[in-house]
Design a protein around this nucleic acid. Structure first.
Lengths: 203, 203, 203, 203
DNA sequence: AATGAATGAGTTTTCATTCAT
DNA sequence: CATGAATGAAAACTCATTCAT
């Protein structure tokens, strides 16, 4: 059974879910969780309001979907970076990706960071852990690279790196100044370049 | 003319305003701007809701008051630190103060950072600039210290330092782990210690 | 797909909207814009308050709907009068319709006039023009009849006629005396009868 | 006992009351009864809010005071007109006074008419009668002049004249067009001029 | 599965009036 | 008498969620 677009019902449903997820990620980033009405997401996805609840039982589930979307973006990025042979280059590629997003970040903040901060204020219920998970995913990947570089305390280094990103994003956003991303990005690249090579580990 | 507490009418009013401001700062930090109802602040201050509007015409003004309260705290801190003769020690004192707040920060985030992030999502209107101003105040103070140390690019150093604080606060909050504050704080102290002495400037 | 009343979903919604519009027109006329709460209109229409906002986004939109309702009534009346061959008779029919409403008018004033007067005090925003439009519609129709009678200055005559109506309505209302409508109505009929016949124009 | 301005206490109080009355008349005319807060009137009069209630027990009393102020203006005007020997000239002087006010009227409507219309929507309680009284005062004066001209049905003529004024004011206000006042005023003057001289009565 | 409509609790804000000094 | 402050009852509007087809 296919519709006019040649999609089966299940496929159409999946496509709608994806559209809603993408819309949620975008709108929640731009307007914030509390200021976003379900109707906003529905409209951005071109889905009637009532229908949203077929795919997501609560607003929280939409937030969770947005977090999942971010995880997806992150995975895609790290997969691409994974093709680079040198872990240092992979880390530098991450930083470069951040700087490339400077305008969006200066306008709306880091998608993950702002979401995590807002989720923290919501009544508890799974979302906290979901936000933590995305953050941890990023930390873990970075720690992995530092580890492969053979550096001591890779987890600490990861916290430093990701923390620097979150901090510069927040400042860039608060001051509405993308150049903060550029300058701090350059500093991070320098720092990564200057790191000694320990006993590199195989991946 | 004084009441039983020995306060004049005007003094009592000023005290109430201060109570409301303090309550606003506290509750807005803990629950976030959007999840805080005026009634929450009123209750925390022991003031009937309607009366709040005698002191603050809008919710935004309460947010602004909370920002002013933070500026006050910051000024008190920097004043205290200002008594230290060495700018490096002053910066280290700042970091130590951050670490001392680790539990609150891990639970609710940096008061200024979370507020700034939320304000960014609100409809524009003065608040953006107010948030930016508090951030800038902190940046400027830090830059001043770096400058007095005779270091190059004091503004950039300040962004790095304050950014690190914002980032570690966000991570500590997202992961609900105060130890992140401890570890990153230690790293910052090391970093400050390792900074070369340029041509120190007189204050 | 029809419900027990034989109405489709869309028809039921349209019916509800009409019910709300009619209720708005009635209640706003009787209680005035400022003294009418949305809840009053909701109750008069038998609709829960929250639901009103599904049909009308703001109170102003309800006022606008009431104005549209008046335009509708006016159009229906002029359509009926339009079947009379003589423009003079059409104008006299209008006056007679006013007099027929004397009791309501003495109690609540002219629906359009009182609404227009109240709208004038509201913060600007489209409503002023809407009110002016209804007034102009009436003026234009009257001017058209005078023009067809071949009289000079048909616009001026229209202002005189409609002005007389507004004035007598206001006095009847202020003095709570419907007989004012009767007497002034009779005078207007005399005046219309006494108007010379100019060079009648074809419609 | 006099203050620095050389006013006795009673005089000062009376002056304040007058200031409040004048402020009430002005502000209520411009903003309408419902949209005027006591605080607005207090501010316009330069009187602290709490103090208003010493002079006027309720908002309604302020409205009443505004009506009394209008009566005062009317009396002053008719007194001035009373010096003219010919009743016809006195009526024409009244019309001229209306036209002179055309800009204010086009902006805010006839002070008495708009107030009367709003009062009609308020919960009953004396105000209705007060408004009616002002209207009647004007009607009676006009009727008197027509009577002195020896014309039949002076009361009806008065209703026609005052009604015309109320109507043209409402139209001028709704359409925001002062020229309506000018044109209708001219017509009324013509009408008065054309009235036959009956058997003039002595005043 | 899809969808327009319904619901009801919650939030900010305004204001007439009162009160304590 | 004067006055800043207090109070509590509205009122408009929003929205997550549910429901009836």
């Amino acid at each position: 059974m296919t519709d006019s677009q040649g999609l089966s019902r299940a496929e159409a449903a999946a496509a709608k879910r994806r559209r809603l997820t993408a819309a949620a990620a975008k709108v929640l980033h731009e307007k914030g969780v509390e200021r976003t009405a379900i109707a906003d997401i529905a409209q951005a996805a071109g889905v009637p309001v009532g229908n949203v609840y077929y795919y997501f039982k609560t607003k929280d589930e939409l937030v969770e979907a947005a977090l999942a979307e971010q995880t997806g973006h992150l995975d895609a990025l790290t997969a691409r970076l994974g093709e680079l042979p040198d872990p240092r280059d992979r880390l530098k590629g991450l930083v470069t990706a951040w700087v490339d997003q400077r305008d969006t970040t200066a306008r709306y903040g880091c998608p993950t960071g702002t979401l995590a901060a807002e989720i923290d204020k919501r009544p508890p219920g799974g979302l906290d852990e979901s936000a933590a998970r995305v953050v941890r995913r990023l930390l873990d990947w970075a720690a992995d690279q530092f580890r492969q570089l053979g550096l001591p305390d890779p987890d600490g280094q990861a916290v430093t790196l990701i923390g620097a990103y979150q901090g510069m994003s927040l400042l860039a956003n608060a001051l509405r100044d993308p150049e903060i991303m550029t300058r701090e990005g350059a500093r991070l690249l320098d720092w990564l370049d200057g790191l000694p090579v320990g006993t590199p580990r195989l991946r």
